[in-house]
Nucleic acid binder design. Sequence first.
DNA 1: CTTTGTATTGAACGATCGTTCAGTTCGGCG
DNA 2: CGCCGAACTGAACGATCGTTCAATACAAAG
Lengths: 190, 190
Amino acid sequence: MNYSRQESVEKAMTVFWQKGYAGTGMRDIQTALDKRPGSIYAAFGNKEGLYLAALEAYTEDLAATLKECTLADSPLHALKSFLHSTLGQTDALTYKRQCFIFKAQADWLALPAGIQSALRQSLQQLRGRFEDIVKAAQQHGELAEDIVPEQAALWLQGQFIAIRTLSTAIENESALEWMLDKVFNDLGKH
Amino acid sequence: MNYSRQESVEKAMTVFWQKGYAGTGMRDIQTALDKRPGSIYAAFGNKEGLYLAALEAYTEDLAATLKECTLADSPLHALKSFLHSTLGQTDALTYKRQCFIFKAQADWLALPAGIQSALRQSLQQLRGRFEDIVKAAQQHGELAEDIVPEQAALWLQGQFIAIRTLSTAIENESALEWMLDKVFNDLGKH
DNA sequence: CTTTGTATTGAACGATCGTTCAGTTCGGCG
DNA sequence: CGCCGAACTGAACGATCGTTCAATACAAAG
């Protein structure tokens, strides 16, 4: 039951991730979950409820991954290799290159109000995790102390968007590697 | 006729820009253009045709703006102030902060094949205009000669995505200004 | 005024949308 | 076994989707 719920949420997340909120039909989801409408509505209320569950799961996952970076010996190196790993998704998994949340934000005005505020909340939460990584890097001497963690976190979030978005449209992998290096070079500069 | 066509394309672009391809219904467009379905389908064939017309218009507009930057006394300064101006859109115009093309790319897998290839083409074309700006900046001595224009253009395109996307989710304007400054500081660094 | 070709209208089509609900299945407890 | 509550089924609902087309309006030419 509860396990099955988590499994359902993950499958739904996959579909929403690929086709967006508006682009995803409940019948796509019924197929993906191999469940009939009644079951899904009994468990999640409606399409919005299911999407919110998927968004929460995604945010938790990503936040946990970023938290791991904070605890690593080299926080910045861990962050870099995580970002690098997202670019490696190929073929049927290329949809994972782009961030689920920013993908959603593209349809901003067409989304239910409940989803809009949930998206803002997720973004804020994840920015907090970036901030933790910056602070951890400073404590490990990887980053100068005069870097403002709040600014650096926002900037890092932006670089994630940039690289992950570009990676869906650019086939030149070495150019992306170069950008990745540049990000972690530029981070400590003024 | 032809003027009215251009006007129609612009209005359609506004709607697509706000609500995305899947999120926009033909009835939204009929309302925005104050035209009945028959007229629209006679002029553009179908929803995809209308979207392609809007995409083309957007690309042409943006390419022209970037071309102006190339011709300016200070290409980089011109580019910076253009990017700055896009962030200034408020209230009902906030949808303009995000790039029309990358907004579309979010729904990538849900889009008709014709739109997918048109999007790739637009991105490539605009990257070419960024490259022109970099080269012009080098000729004006604003940028070191050892910067590889192709790499710098891709990187600039990424920074545009980052800042414009963040600006739709961040209310802190001074933080965005700071990021904008950082972009043009980092551009020439290695 | 009539004719001709083009632009526009708006009702209507089948398909698909999100959602509902009466009926069925199923696991666990007495 | 008999019973209960929870989970699931699948047909069906009204609304909306993209699209079509016969009918109408209109501008220019004869």
